[in-house]
Nucleic acid binder design. Structure first.
Lengths: 236, 236
DNA sequence: CGATTGCTTGATACCTCTCAACCCAGGTGG
DNA sequence: CCACCTGGGTTGAGAGGTATCAAGCAATCG
């Protein structure tokens, strides 16, 4: 938990701007999001969620969407027997929960204690109708999410456990202030459900990578990339 | 090959309208696509591709996108060692190849001989800028594709081979005129790469389902769903 | 402290892959 | 016309990777 708080604090300090700046094209952030173009009036209240609290469920009315202020959020789907597939993690600055239809197609939950801003979708729709630029932003947002989902499908369908874990580490190194040390907000179970593996396989694979001196597991949630290049080469 | 031709002919006969009507919210079709709202002038020439011909490659300039007229198209990604993940199949009426960025993020190939109409993206963008309805259609299209990709990720990450194959059969039964008999345009390899399996596992699983009397493999590309309900129950 | 939670590790089972042989239908050319 | 070849599909035997089941460890929290 201390690691989680450290992680959150980390991002709260650098805050949204830095993360938005890092690359809107690789994350589900939106430069055109209301509070960036000055029309802050559209933003609803900031909401707080404690760890593992559901933000919305699959099938819930999608009349609002959110932007992460601090902490980390996950979106996921469930099978009736409880199997879970995590679709994406969202870090400060990222937008999630935006839908075309009336209902959410996934659930969203707080990975750690986190706060999010909500936006009424209706008012955004009206705004977009009069603002070609903004509506293009929405399209771009959707297509960016799509590209990520497709990359994720490739990983799930065609990569081995080592490759999956390596890809995960590299992805998160990119979001870390120090790209050599990763502070994870999520549990092994979250990682497993994101990669389509079991918790044990994730753990074993991390141990294996440590044995091979590619990484160093300083603490369970704190991983140093000893050899990022070799790690990257695992994914051809 | 005879089965493929039969399949194509089938769809050519009923043609785009029927397939669009079947449910734009489950497929990557677009009601707002130019040739539907009367501005047919925007459509480029109809192009023909023979089986397995590449329509565009990952990284190619995405200045045009396409709509299937007849036949079936697949979009996919490759790893450097040749592993392939098929992202989606497109049937007549479906739009594919639309991007937010300048480049295609996937490759597209002809599953069987097929013809497609091309559209210049630039002109569509201009049109959308003046037409809130159309630009919303683009957003809806992207979000629909996203929802499909997420469902696909759940399948890839959390379902067993039988469940995957059953899901595939049920999906295609939905696109078939007779929902009990499926005519497949794609090879076992295509199915395998779509489901994240090997060709042998697909074959074995189909045999198993036939042994259990859930399906009947009339011909390699022609499958009758003997017990659709049981098949559906496999996916909880 | 004892209990709980998250994580690691081990032993084993099982599912899917790999490698290989074979079948079958269609097309080709002698 | 038939032998042959080819491509797609099926099936089998065995290997391997990941899951399952179970135990143990460390940190946190009451």
């Amino acid at each position: 938990m201390s690691t989680q708080l450290a992680y959150s604090a980390n991002h709260e300090a650098t805050a949204a701007p830095a993360i938005l700046a890092r690359g809107p094209w690789t994350r589900a952030s939106m430069d055109g999001t209301p509070d960036r173009d000055g029309s802050l009036s559209m933003a609803g209240p900031v909401l707080h969620f404690t760890q593992d609290r559901e933000i919305y469920g699959e099938g819930d009315a999608a009349d609002v969407f959110f932007k992460v202020v601090s902490g980390v959020v996950r979106t996921c789907k469930f099978l009736s027997d409880g199997r879970r597939q995590i679709d994406a993690f969202y870090i400060p600055g990222d937008v999630f929960g935006l839908e075309a239809g009336a209902e959410h197609t996934l659930s969203a939950e707080a990975v750690c204690d986190c706060s999010v801003v909500s936006y009424r979708r209706r008012s955004v729709g009206k705004l977009a109708a009069n603002d070609a630029g903004l509506s293009h932003q929405f399209f771009a947002y959707a297509m960016r999410s799509l590209a990520q989902a497709q990359e994720h499908a490739l990983l799930l369908g065609r990569r081995s456990a080592v490759e999956k874990v390596a890809a995960f580490l590299i992805e998160w190194a990119g979001y870390s202030p120090d790209s050599k040390v990763i502070s994870l907000a999520m549990t092994r179970q979250d990682i497993a459900d994101y990669l389509g593996l079991t918790i044990e396989t994730v753990s074993r694979t991390l141990s294996q990578l440590e044995r091979e001196a590619l990484i160093e597991v300083a603490a369970a949630r704190r991983i140093r990339l000893t050899d990022p290049t070799a790690l990257r080469n695992l994914n051809s």
